[in-house]
Every structure is written in C-alpha cells, then in structure tokens.
C-alpha cells in the first residue's frame, strides 16, 4: 500500500506542502492527551493535598492551554483546507484532460458508467483519504506509549498487550477490506451505468410498458452494492467491538493494579488518573491508527481507479 500512497501523493503534487501540513497537524492528539492528563493529575493532587493554590493554578493553566491548542489546530486546518481542495481540483482537471486525450477505442473499452464513476465518486474518495488523521494518531500513540513506559514499565507492558489485538485485527482485516472496497467501486460503477440506462431509456420504457422490466433487469447493482457494503460494515464493526472488549478488559486490569498502588500509598490518585488517561491514549490511539489505515485502504480503491486512467496517459 505504501508505494501506492506514494504515487498518489506524487500525483497530487506539492508533496513538500503536504508534508508540512502533516507535520503541523500531527502533534494535536499528543498535546491534547498530555494537557488533559497533567491537568487531572495536578488538580487532583491539589485536592488531595488540600492546596487551593495548586488547584487554581491547574485550572488556570488548563483554561489557557485548551483554547490555545484549539486555536492552533483550527489555524492549521483553515490554512490547509484550501490547499487540499485545490490539489483535488487539479487532479480532477488532469483526469478530465487525460480522458479527453484518450482514443475512441480506449473510451469504448469501458462502459460509460465506469467512466462516470471514475470521474466523480472515485475522485471524491481521494478527497476523504485520512492521511492527516493517521499522522495525528500515530504521533499520539507514540507519545502516550513513551510517557506510559516512563511512568510505569510494568503497567505500560499490560496496556501495550491490550492494544495489540486491535493492531493485529487491523492486519488481518486489511486484505478483505481492500478486496471488498475494490468490489464496491466496481459495483458502484455498474450501478451508474444502469442509472444511465434508466434515465435514457425512460421514454422508451414508458411507451412500451417496460418500466418494471427495466427496474428488474437493470437494478442488480443496487443489491450488489448493498451486499458489499454490509460485509464491509460487518468487518469494521467486528474490529470495533473486538478492540472495545479488549480495551475494557485492559482498563479493568490497569485500574485494579493502580487502585491497589494508591491504597498502598505507592501512587497518588492524580497520578493514577493521569496513567489511565495515557492508557486511553495508547489503546484508543492504536485503534484509531488501525481505523485510519483501513479507511485509507477503502479510499485507495477509488484512488487506484483514478490513477489507472492517469497512468494510461504515461504509457502511451
């Protein structure tokens, strides 16, 4: 998948600008986790030790830092969105130009619906490739794991073990998700072809009382799409439920051990809450990274079909 994402990035152009955006955007989740964890730890320590000053200092810091972080993230978003939109528009233009330059035999080789789907819904899929979410969650995951290891190596190991199933599931699902996404793109383009028939043939169908026949004969695509979508949703759902269950088990273990440590006086309540928060950063981060990778696979099925047309241009 890596090389295909690479060639997509190349096709979109201005990779430096894209990298800059990804870099600027990536610290968001890590910062938010650290901010919340240290706020909870600080505020709860203040409460535990009966220090008003410590509590208010935490509150003040939190109320400044959170809007600051949002402002930063919003600014990065706002400056990036036009860039991304213009890249997609440029890709579309290149695609249209490419299609216009095709020979009639190349055009005839594919059904009209297939062309329509490539020029519309497949390009739109590229629009939704969550590259920047991936960057955000990878950094969040790495930072949370690092901090957790520094706080308590043993608990960190347990947490990492509970995050592993989500990652493994992602690996196992990658192949079927990719295959189903490809099948879904084909089903969508078949359906576009059928809809074209439905619209163009409308008057003829009406004259010859053939509407029912037309719907029966030409709306199979609908069923195929539904079937593939259901399977895809089932796979994604299984992955979500699986990671949720394992994650909950992990919470229980970490919470029990951590609570015993607090009772034994080896850890503060604030420290435990912060630890739980970093645990969430690792488990949720891992599952988000897996989700992003699966979503990228789904979107790449559309991107592949676009690139196929663009590549066709280079070989001739």
């Amino acid at each position: 998948m890596k090389s295909r994402v690479e060639s997509l990035v190349r096709e979109l152009g201005r990779p430096g600008r894209l990298l800059l955006f990804l870099l600027l955007r990536s610290p968001y989740e890590a910062c938010a986790t650290i901010l919340l964890a240290s706020f909870l730890a600080g505020a709860l320590s203040g409460v535990e030790s009966g220090s008003h000053k410590a509590l208010f200092a935490s509150l003040a810091w939190f109320s400044i830092a959170v809007p600051g972080l949002y402002l930063y993230n919003g600014t990065v978003w706002a400056t990036h969105a036009p860039f991304w939109i213009s890249r997609i528009a440029a890709l579309r233009r290149r695609l249209f130009r490419r299609v216009l330059a095709l020979r009639a035999t190349d055009i005839d080789a594919r059904p009209t619906g297939d062309w329509s789907a490539r020029l519309t819904s497949d390009v739109s899929l590229i629009d939704s490739i969550p590259l920047h979410y991936l960057a955000v969650h990878v950094v969040g995951l790495v930072v949370s794991t690092g901090i957790l290891v520094r706080i308590d190596g043993f608990l960190a190991l347990i947490v990492i073990l509970t995050a592993l199933p989500a990652i493994l599931a992602g690996q196992v699902l990658a192949k079927p998700v990719r295959a189903l996404s490809g099948a879904l793109r084909t089903a969508v383009s078949d359906q576009v072809a059928e809809l074209v028939t439905l619209v163009e043939g409308g008057p003829t169908a009406r004259l010859y009382d053939a509407s029912e026949w037309l719907i029966h004969r030409f709306c199979f695509g609908n069923r195929a799409i539904r079937r593939v979508r259901m399977r895809l949703a089932l796979l994604m759902g299984l992955q979500a439920v699986g990671s949720l269950l394992v994650g909950m088990g992990g919470t229980l273990v970490v919470l029990s051990i951590g609570a015993l440590m607090v009772l034994d006086g080896r850890r503060t309540l604030g420290g435990l809450v912060a630890l739980l928060h970093y645990r969430l950063g690792v488990v949720a981060g891992a599952s988000m990274v897996v989700n992003c990778l699966l979503s990228i696979r789904i979107a790449m099925a559309g991107a592949d079909r676009v690139m196929e047309v663009l590549d066709g241009g280079k070989s001739t």
């Binding site: 072809a193 028939t197 163009e200 043939g201 008057p203 003829t204 004259l207 037309l214 004969r217 030409f218």
Partner: peptide, 9 residues
C-alpha cells in the same frame, strides 16, 4: 423514437 434507443441487452 428519434434517436433510436437500445437497452444494453
């Protein structure tokens, strides 16, 4: 009809 329309069948 003009133009003649055929279904993909």
């Amino acid at each position: 009809l003009q133009p003649p329309l055929l279904f993909p069948a």
